[in-house]
Amino acid sequence: MSAMTEHTLAAPAVTRLLPKPGTLLVGLVVIGVAVVAASSAPRVLASLLTQSVIVAFLALGVGLLIRISGLVSFGHAAPFGLGAYGAAWALSPAAPIAPEIGLLLIAPAIGAAFFLIGLVVSRIEGIAFGMLTLALGQSVHVAANKFRTLSGGSDGLIVDVPRRLWGFRTEALQTASGMLIVAVAALMAVLLALAVFERTRAGRLAVAIRENEERVRFLGYRTRAPKAVVLALSAAIPALGGVLFTLYQGFVSPEILTWGFSGQALIMAILGGSVALWGPIAGALAFFVLREELGGLTSHWLAILGTTLIVVTVTWPTGLAGAFGALGRRLTGTVAKGDPA
């Protein structure tokens, strides 16, 4: 272990930021598996996987906020839903700019908006933050229902996806198998970007602020902007998922803005765990598989979900990612501090 870190230290700065080659390989393998699954899986399974991968963007955003800032959000359906509505507006004939440009601007714009929100709410922490996000999410939900001319109200908007975008035919995006490949590739790209971010000084500063904000201030930093950057990232990623959602479904409605949806994303993030970046993605997959399996078996899906959530939170707070890590260490015979006994 120490020999390896000494080695990476000697290497140039850029390669220090990149994840280990093995990690990159896993990402490529996941994309490969997605391609195979997309071409060979039965339609029901492909559709389930596609749904879960798109929602995984939301879970990843929620999980990132827990992982880096230690903050719990009950309102992240808002950036996801705004991304989806944004895509619908960008694709509407009335849009002032070309859809190819509009679609690319959505996630950065929502990220920027949340950066500003982050600057304003930087003093709010813990429980109050959770309640604030709940209110924020609810107000977006209410607004989507009220402002019918923009959002179509509770009926939602039907989106006419152009036949070609960026010179590619878009039919495939509206099939489960086509979207699966695109969404998984995008998700892996986001994961890679996050892994790099966490290794930059800004990423480490964000973790340091979560651990001990006072000392960070005594080390010569202002803490407001770094906290807002994490909130912005945690919103831009769901926004990207929202864009994919619209391209895939061709339809948006306030359903994806409810706080129940935010809560589901939180459950996925907790279930998956935040000790690894990919935890929430695993949580999203597990959530959809569980719902599919249990939803057919019993009508008490909600109660089972609630019980699972309580048991996981209380007895295994590191979630699937923690369990997987512990298993990996057991197999390789190393022991790490902090594993639940």
Partner: peptide, 22 residues
């Protein structure tokens, strides 16, 4: 941590909603 208690009560909410629906 407050984080944990909040999530646990959220789980209770889901269970009670199921009870009411059932």
């Amino acid at each position: 941590q407050p984080l944990i208690t909040v999530i646990v009560t959220f789980g209770v909410l889901l269970i009670l909603e199921d009870v009411v629906r059932s």
